[in-house]
Computed example of a mutant assay.
Amino acid sequence: MVATTQTFAARLSSVVAGSGSMLCLGLDPDGMTDAAAAERQCRRLLDAALDSVCAVKPNLAFFEQFGSAGYAVLERLRAAVPDDRLLILDGKRGDMANTTSAYARALFDVLGADAITVNALLGADSMAPFLGRPGRGVFVLARTSNPGAADFLEAPAGSDGHPLYQQIVAAATAWDPGGAIGFVVGATAPEAVGEVRRLAPCAPLLLPGVGAQGGSLEDAVAAALDAEGGGAIISVSRGIAAAPQGATTAAREYRDRIAAVRSAR
């Protein structure tokens, strides 16, 4: 993590340009027997894929399940991600403002996140503590990639009858001090990706759901790109970690497929 006066959106643009990639390596060491095994898998994936990605996204649950040993792995992984890549900590935090202040200190100040994922359903006051660090990003859950996302996030809400995820985007955009808030939108719902981009034309978008979850990379990327042909991060976890052709080749293939969509605009 480096000190900066840039907004997170500007930092993302710089990192994408420097790395030549909009691919994010998801670190989800599922099925590991202990923290040491989780760390070995993550190190293997970093060694294999770092050259092809702009960001690295550990899912906190797979480390926190091992207690202090897992937390120590997160600290070491922070040191292994270079300054010219972004570290996104995926914990989907959200609570009362005093609690989110503690979450913000843990994720930004202790673990050194460049960006985090959050649940904004507790409203503006719960989000404020996450927004006070220049250059750091906050990806708000909008329309997630799991099938159950339709249960609530796509249900009509409020007097206008728009889906809940669209109301979340509209509200969170109004809370943004400038270039800090982005949105998580599943690649499994490219039409929702397009709606979020329409509602938030300049916001960074984080797209999970490509690969094992079956989301169409090409459709999601095309819907997510901003007016400059950027503004998005496409996260792939199992599609790289478990790829039969190997993680290095898989990461390069995903990177190049994303680049092809951008070039075709």
Rank of each mutant, 00 (worst) to 15 (best):
S126E: 05
M32W: 00
A115Q: 07
G18E: 13
A69W: 01
A247G: 00
A189H: 13
Q41P: 00
R133Q: 14
D51Y: 00
A35S: 12
A142I: 12
V261L: 10
T5S: 14
L164Y: 09
A223C: 14
G135T: 07
M127F: 11
S237W: 02
V140Y: 08
A192P: 10
F183C: 06
A189M: 06
C54H: 02
N59A: 14
L12F: 11
T144S: 14
P163F: 05
C42Y: 03
E64N: 12
D84V: 04
T248R: 14
G26F: 08
C24P: 02
V73M: 03
A250P: 01
G70H: 06
L207I: 13
V210S: 02
H162F: 00
N146I: 06
G18Q: 11
L206F: 14
G148P: 02
D256W: 01
L74P: 04
V16Y: 01
E253A: 13
L206P: 04
L217S: 08
P190D: 10
E64C: 04
G182S: 10
A247Y: 01
C24L: 03
V193C: 09
F63W: 10
F152S: 00
C202Q: 15
A113D: 11
E195I: 10
A180I: 09
P134N: 07
Q65T: 15
V15F: 02
Q167K: 14
K92F: 08
A243F: 01
A222N: 09
R11F: 08
L23S: 06
S13G: 15
A200L: 13
